[in-house]
Amino acid sequence: MALLTVNNLKKVYTTRFGGNKVEALRDVNFSVEEGEYVAIMGESGSGKTTLLNILASVDRPTSGEVLLKGEKTTSVKDAYLAKFRREHLGFVFQDFNLLDNFSVEDNIYLPLVLAGKKYSEMIPKLQVIAKKLGILEILKKYPYEISGGQKQRTAVARALITEPDILLADEPTGALDSRSSDDLLKTFSHIHKDGQTILMVTHSVRAASHADRVLFIKDGEIFHQIYRGTLTNEEMYKKISDSLTILLAGGDLNE
């Protein structure tokens, strides 16, 4: 069974006075297997942010359902949502979203503390993750003292420390220079190799080229997908670029 299944997802926004209806998602169907690394690509306004928000259970769909490990996340009650997200989902954002009044260490501890874990349980987890992400030296520093790449790795550590079922990343390389981006993508590949399921929304072909599978979303529908198979990152990059060109030209891939 797939880890994450999305069935007939539809989201309609109604303008304030009820007149115009905008279909952000029309009919989205896809699934993510356990241990898979999936990238979702699309232009601005294609509906990918709406999709991610629904997957993150920040927003609710108009119809359709999202199943995580067979459980319907779209019907979790509001009161349990925060807990649900804390336990099952990990988030990485474009602008890091670190708290500037916490040290790196405390930022990473935050979700565990919110979950009510004991301090003694938390220490070994932090050590493992910090080592994996190469941020052991900066644990005592504050966000304003470290670089953007280090900030994003801190955010990844914060997302992973709860051992989430799936890591949701929203344009994780968006605010990084190309070197830091490469570093971060390598990090993603590492944690993917260790068995972490990753779902990433991105503009960047380079970022997408690290994934196992790339979904293209256009006008609220999954339009196309590419499997890596045995391709290298560079070949994958080429293939994604080609697909995007056709996509932007407005053509139909099946022609």
Binding site: A82, R85, L98, L99, N101, P111, R158
Partner: peptide, 15 residues
């Protein structure tokens, strides 16, 4: 901004 981040990281509105 801090409270927004806290909510994103998994704090409920009530909390």
């Amino acid at each position: 901004s801090r409270f927004l981040i806290l909510q994103k990281v998994g704090m409920s509105k009530g909390e």
